[in-house]
Amino acid sequence: MQRINFNEMKNTVKKAFLNAGLPDAKADICAQIHTESSCDGIYSHGVNRVARFIDYVNKGWVDINAEPSLVKSLGVIEIYDGNRGVGITNALFAVEQATDIAHKNGMGIVALRNTTHWMRGGTYGWKIAEKGLAAICWTNTESCMPAWGAKDTRLGNNPFVMAVPRESGPLVLDMAMSQYSYGKLQVTRLKGEKLPFPGGYDKDGILTDEPGPIEQSMRILPTGYWKGSGMAVLLDAMAALLSAGSPTNAIDKIEEGSCTGASQIFMVFDPAQLGGSDFTHQMANSVADYIKTSEPAEGQSEVNYPGERSTKNRHENLHQGIPVDDGVWAEVIALAEGKTK
């Protein structure tokens, strides 16, 4: 494990994307987002995803020149086809469109279908909250989790994001419908560690905190057991309904990597037109302060509100450098130098 300066990481990742054929503007945006994700401590969807994304580009699963196209406009709701373009730039486009609609109407919804992996879902919550707006976003995915009571994978883990603006740091929830995402399993395995709590079943159906056997069995545990399973089903159905796009069972038939053909929803709310900006910040502060003044449980030193650890990681990693696995970084450098396996 080593630490890399933010700008060095971004520039190296950008070179790798340029070598993969991305136009300069898209390479720069994607490198920025991947580096920000790692800087915030979400390594699994930051620099760790660079090689996989480039592999998808090389296989033609991501169209690096495609742009979203408008399918339908219904006032506060717009539907776009992502044309299987770059997931990050497609999602950021959807954020901007939903933001414009929200400024005009108090709320705006963009439903994006036929897109590709948006990487870290929380990115879009953070970007919206930093504009002083609130957000609810989610995506469906290919099957990677069994329904509650099942052995075979029929559900996506369908990441769900909510964000509320706050001057001293927004409240941002970014969670998969599994107890741990596959990215978290990978990061934990690379560190040679166990999960804090059991995260799924091994091939024999035994609940375990060892990430490797869960990755092999693909029997990750739905968050909240049957509740997470039910949420995954409905998030999938709602994403497909609102975008007139593909649900998980249709994405499975595409067979072009993780999230290719996914349906995503971006809901943006303008607090200034609701309770007002002052009310919003006072309310958000009261929520955060109420959580922070909780009495810590046994073995805990503090209680955090959603998004607080990401902010702390960002400050630390900007100062000390961003941690990255040696093998992962070597692979990114090779891609940046135009070397192939």
Rank of each mutant, 00 (worst) to 15 (best):
N7T: 10
F17R: 14
N19I: 02
A20T: 02
K26S: 13
D28L: 11
C30G: 04
S38A: 13
S38M: 02
C39P: 06
N48D: 15
R49K: 10
V50C: 15
R52K: 10
G60T: 03
N65R: 14
A66D: 02
E67G: 04
P68C: 05
E78H: 13
R84P: 01
T89E: 04
D100T: 13
I101N: 13
M107D: 03
G108Q: 03
I109D: 08
V110R: 10
L112F: 01
W118F: 14
G121S: 11
A129T: 07
A134T: 03
A135E: 06
T139Q: 15
T139G: 15
S143I: 03
P146S: 12
G156D: 04
N158C: 11
M162Q: 12
L173Q: 06
S181D: 02
G183I: 12
K184G: 04
V187K: 04
R189S: 08
K191L: 08
F197R: 15
G205A: 06
I206N: 15
I206V: 15
E210L: 10
T223V: 13
T223N: 09
G230C: 12
A232N: 07
L241E: 05
L241N: 05
P247C: 08
T260W: 00
S263R: 04
Q264W: 04
M267R: 02
M267H: 02
A272Q: 08
A272R: 09
L274V: 05
H281R: 06
D289K: 13
Y290C: 14
E298W: 00
E298V: 01
Q300S: 13
Q300H: 13
S301V: 08
S301M: 03
Y305G: 10
R314F: 01
L318H: 07
L335G: 09
A336W: 00
